[in-house]
Design a protein around this nucleic acid. Structure first.
Lengths: 204, 204, 204, 204
DNA sequence: AATGAATGAGTCTTCATTCAT
DNA sequence: AATGAATGAAGACTCATTCAT
């Protein structure tokens, strides 16, 4: 029993340090393109040695992936809490998603990185796929709640895609402030939500 | 007069070599992630020296950007030729755009790279903005043709975004072949086109 | 008395664990170059922690040396058992020695490592010298038995050298199997033994 | 014609710099175990940048191998010049070989390294084999000159082995100076030569 | 204008060793 | 005495860019 407790504490400490490393990485990502962040920087920011980083992750890519997965989980939960909310579900969902992306551009950059190019280990690939599927599920279930007649899966894919495209198209806008961009991307999210909502509603 | 001719030829030669370099880069991009292509590789593929490349471009980024701009121009023209086509304009536009992206993943990767992170010179930024606006214009004009009452500009942004998001979401799909991905992404393009079309039509 | 017993057991346990570590190292050496074997690997193979290894050895080099000394002792004893054997002593000795080297390339690699380069502590050096001398003694005594008139010490050195050189020259042979190499090295051992035997016999 | 000259000079310059790098490496090897010499050190010693080293060699191993091959060629030629020398050929050959090894311990260490463990590319392996065979040929031809009846090839292998073993056995000798070691190893070389010579002579 | 060798800062990663528990 | 996470110095190697020819 005591030993079990000890093990538990050990694990808790390990989890904590892992979290410290993740947070350090995330902090750095906020300041610059995540691809240009080095192990040394992360180590310094986390207040641990370089070796420790490799004690928790086999390589940088896996660390980056973990940051991504953490974010994916966070946004997934945020969309979960949507459930009790009443009316225009699609709009709330869309707004919330795009709002998150505005606040976490790194997440979006990583999504682009891993979904388009990233050479991941099979195991890492599996983890990525699972998390992406979970995220997608929130869109699907929200659509099902809005209209049970729709082919939810496919429409969910379309909606998910549509929202994801907003940032790639407008995260960068000549001479606009972050606030401008947020306003514009949220407006687009609203339009897309409206378009999909009307599409569903229109069905007899 | 003779001198003018000489200058002209000189310029033609220069343009040709520049095109050779661009083609070499594009060829390499077809085989691997553009971020991992080196100057040396491009030089070898183009049959010129490294120095020559720097004679045409101040740095690698500008060369990459030029490849991107070339592709942007190409797809813009492809969407132009749509004009004479009658009926379901939105669908044709969407299918054609996504079809191009399937064939030119590098273009899409670069769009993601430059739109999200790329540190470009002001001049490069300007060129990028112009080309992106031209591309966007095709979406806007197509929408206007479909329905003059819509707030075309904003809806065009939404549609453009929606389509762009397809690739980031599904260019990579666990255990699917390129053909599978093409089929799925084109289907999603169709759905998005349909959704936008029905949205427009429904207006009184 | 009881305390003495306790101490004795303690020591026995210590010796056992030390042996376990040595065996683990030897097992790993069978699979790969000993210089590329890490403490971590040895620890895992032995089923002990890294710290424990440093409890028995001040550093990796001393552990490697201990493995080497163990092997040296083993081969020395193998050559000892030669005593009762009658006739062509030199040949039997040579064959047996080279046969051992074929089976324990690590021993040979270590001999090369420690004899040529290894920076050892004075204490370690002393241990190495003693064991090498013991091994050499077997060659000397065998020579003396074969012919009491020879300057056995020097000829023993020459024979020992001659045999040692076989492996460095032919342990690696382009496109040959282990069996081929064993056959060839044993044949060379035979020749060298014959050469030395005839040299001794020829004396008036 | 002029262009040819130009190319020739270019190549000469390249060869020269390559030689400078090789010499730098050899100089460092004289002071410490060649396995502990770093790229940085070689670059500094050669007065070139790290990058330049990699401009001439794909990796450190190939550079080390080249140093080895150069030495192998050198000693091979030294043994060649033996030809005009009259009588006790085997002894002269042996003495000269061991003398060279005393002066070039690095060569011997490398031989041990590459022959026992070194992971080389197939191409590198081929080069190594060729040079070793050339070296071995000198022993074979010397033996043939000494006695045409012997199975020269095999005896050459045995002699070559026997000499090679001298250094691994006595390059390091407790409390002896370099001069002592040289004296002892040369004496052993003499004995081995004598043993082989008498073996050959004794044949009817 | 074309060439391509030289540059070297900067990267990730390894691994023997330490030491608090 | 056993543990094993933390350490961080050190290494090999890359590659965009420069510049003398």
């Amino acid at each position: 029993m005591t030993i079990a407790k000890f093990q538990e504490l050990k694990q808790a400490e390990r989890d904590l340090r892992r979290q410290i490393i993740l947070d350090a990485a995330l902090t750095l990502f906020a300041a610059k393109d995540f691809r240009s962040v080095t192990v040394r920087e992360i180590a310094r920011q986390a207040g641990v040695s370089i070796g420790t980083i490799y004690n928790y992750y086999p390589n940088l890519t896996e660390l980056f992936l973990d940051v991504f997965l953490d974010c994916a989980e966070e946004i997934t939960h945020l969309l979960d809490d949507l459930a009790p909310i009443s009316a225009p579900r699609l709009e709330t969902l869309s707004i919330r998603y795009i709002s998150y992306l505005n606040d976490h551009m790194t997440f979006y950059q990583m999504m682009s990185h891993f979904m388009l190019g990233g050479d991941l280990s099979p195991e890492a690939n599996r983890k990525l796929d699972i998390k992406m599927k979970e995220l997608l599920n929130r869109f699907e279930s929200t659509l099902l709640e809005a209209d049970r007649k729709t082919d939810a899966r496919l429409t969910a894919h379309a909606l998910f895609s549509a929202l994801n495209g907003i940032m790639i198209s407008y995260a960068r806008y000549p001479g606009k402030t972050d606030a401008d961009i947020r306003r514009h991307t949220l407006r687009l999210a609203g339009i897309i939500a409206a378009v999909f909502t009307s599409h569903i509603a229109e069905r007899p």
